[in-house]
């Protein structure tokens, strides 16, 4: 079987297209690279969506954390503490245990039956956990950035008569993003890395559709040789990390475009906040 044929059969195996049965004997390097690459679709899916939803929720939580009202601040504090203070591993486990307690037949809400069976599937359940997790980490980053906005900037805004929403929209928001961006870049990278835990210790794989690590594990088990599949995953992730760094770097340049060039805060890959 040629390599091109393998690619056609397995390139989208992880999302259910192509050959149903995984290769069972005579494993080739081509099969390993193709299938593990196919699994990477899931890593990107989890990472991208959790990051996109999490971004907005994180800003809401960060604002609540900085709020003067106890009633807003306390829940936000606890949310961040619980999700940053415990391993993702345990969060997945507890989420799965809780979700499967939902009645299988669906829940009646105002006379409409809401299906619940899909919540224990990785694409929904794991995404939800990752979303909450990244929101907590990013909220901490944005909260820190809000606190470091120069006092003078805010005073100047008030002197110009900007208050409330106007002040937030024009002054706080752009400055917060600019200050938080390097740390947020790291959070994004580590979120993508954390997606490998989904099938490894969190959720069951359905119809042998899993992420990059799931297929690497499959090959390591079938070929009894861990030294080929795992380095392939590693290489894919290094590439993914480079792409992410580049993309976030472009945004960083945009956010800092008004600053004189020698003051531009370059993205330093510091592990500000990981799980």
């Amino acid at each position: 079987m040629s390599c091109w044929q393998t690619v056609q059969d397995y390139a989208f195996r992880s999302i259910g297209f192509g050959e149903n049965l995984l290769p069972r004997s005579d494993f080739t390097l081509c099969q390993q690279i193709t299938l593990i690459g196919s699994g990477l679709i899931w890593n990107v899916y989890f990472g991208a969506l959790a990051l996109a939803f999490g971004f907005f929720f994180a800003i809401a939580v960060a604002l609540a954390k900085s709020s003067r009202h106890r009633i807003l601040r306390k829940p936000a504090d606890w949310f961040v503490f619980v999700f940053r203070g415990s391993p993702l591993f345990i969060q997945f486990f507890l989420a799965y245990e809780t979700l499967q307690l939902l009645p299988k037949a669906g829940v009646e809400v105002f006379g409409i039956t809401v299906e619940t069976a899909w919540t224990t599937r990785a694409w929904a359940g794991a995404l939800f956990v990752l979303f909450l997790n990244t929101s907590a980490y990013a909220a901490e980053i944005f909260h820190g950035a809000l606190k470091s906005i120069p006092k003078g900037d805010l005073e100047a805004a008030e002197a110009y008569g900007l208050t409330g929403w106007q002040k937030f929209r024009r002054i706080q928001w752009p400055t917060m993003l600019r200050l938080a961006w390097p740390a947020y870049t790291n959070e994004a990278i580590f979120l993508f890395h954390a997606t490998t835990l989904v099938f490894f210790s969190g959720f069951p794989a359905f119809r042998q559709m899993g992420d990059a690590l799931y297929y690497a594990n499959y090959f390591a088990d079938k070929t009894f040789n861990p030294f080929v599949p795992y380095p392939i995953v590693a290489a894919y992730f290094i590439a993914l990390t480079l792409i992410l760094t580049f993309g976030f770097g472009l945004v960083n340049r945009y956010l800092n475009r008004h600053l004189p060039s020698n003051q531009k805060s370059r993205i330093r890959l510091r592990p500000q906040l990981i799980r």
């Binding site: 069972r24 210790s201 794989a205 119809r207 042998q208 594990n217 499959y218 088990d221």
Partner: peptide, 20 residues
Amino acid sequence: VSTIQAGYVAESGATLLEFA
């Protein structure tokens, strides 16, 4: 996951759900 039973189920046409 990765037992001979998992392989058998995958080939039997059933929907395989794998746990660690």
